[in-house]
């Protein structure tokens, strides 16, 4: 852990994530305005001492909207990757441990899932369903588990030949216990790396969906739909595009830096 943070880039990634999470968690304490307080008289104000990042077309405080937006963006990133990790570990472990027909079926299903360009799959699913935050999380999770399943399967394929697995089987330990206690914990390193990088990707997907108007629905703020609002006043209110864009950029960068640092520490040979 200390080794991990010794790398300056990894450390900056971690600091970015901690900072963003801090904003998200303590949003009500930090903000002077409610994110959906409309103040028509003060629309499109430039950043100032009263409105740190200015106001939008409806006079809402951009800083407050961004901070509340962080809650949405970060939780979508984390929860959807959480879903993907659970599904990926389940299918990957199943395929890797049992092999044979189960392996073939599961991995061909993975191949089929990977054939769809995921953004179009997500678009289609969200268009069919009600676009709300739960659906977004579920859809991103359900379309993002294949890489993790492959990683887990590959690790388990090699781990299951090790003597400690034979020893456990010789001791009469059940398959489920062997998978849960001996295989998955030893295979988790690459998954943590992949999941960390995956959070960044999920945040981007959520922002894209919200920007296209089929993600998180207004008035709930998310970085993506703030950007969408900003489109119409691009020429007059630079702050409305710059700050949400920066927030997405910095957060994604943070997760990517941390992910790469984790990869170097957890998988030193790769």
């Amino acid at each position: 852990m200390i080794n991990l943070l010794r790398n300056k880039l990894t450390l900056s990634g971690a600091i970015i994530i901690v900072l963003m999470s801090f904003f998200a968690v303590f949003a009500p304490v930090i903000c002077h305005y409610q994110p959906d307080d409309i103040d028509i008289g003060n629309y499109l104000l430039a950043p100032s001492a009263t409105h740190w990042l200015g106001t939008d077309l409806l006079g809402r405080d951009l800083f407050s909207r961004m901070v509340y937006g962080a809650r949405i963006s970060l939780s979508v990133g984390l929860v959807s990757i959480g879903i993907a990790v659970v599904i990926g570990i389940f299918f990957g472990a199943l395929a890797g441990y049992y092999g044979g027909v189960i392996d073939t079926l599961v991995m061909r299903f993975v191949d089929i899932m990977l054939c769809f360009p995921s953004i179009f799959l997500i678009l289609a699913l969200v268009a069919l369903l009600e676009p709300n935050i739960m659906v977004i999380m579920a859809v991103i999770g359900l379309t993002g588990w294949m890489g993790i399943a492959r990683l887990i399967r590959a690790e388990i394929l090699s781990l299951k030949e090790r003597d400690f697995v034979s020893a456990a089987r010789a001791c009469g330990v059940s398959d489920i216990t062997i998978i849960a206690r001996h295989l998955v914990p030893n295979a988790i390193g690459p998954v943590i790396v992949s999941a960390t990088l995956g959070v960044a990707a999920a945040i981007l997907v959520e922002s894209s969906l919200s920007f296209l108007g089929i993600g998180v629905q207004p008035p709930t703020p998310s970085w993506g739909n703030i950007l969408m609002d900003a489109k119409s006043s691009l020429g007059v209110a630079w702050w409305m595009t710059l700050f949400p864009g920066l927030a997405i950029f910095i957060t994604v960068l943070g997760y990517n830096l941390l992910g790469e640092g984790l990869r170097d520490t957890l998988m030193p040979r790769a």
Binding site: F164, H182, N186
Partner: peptide, 8 residues
Amino acid sequence: AGSLSPRL
């Protein structure tokens, strides 16, 4: 080394 689970 190989017959003992490294994380237990």
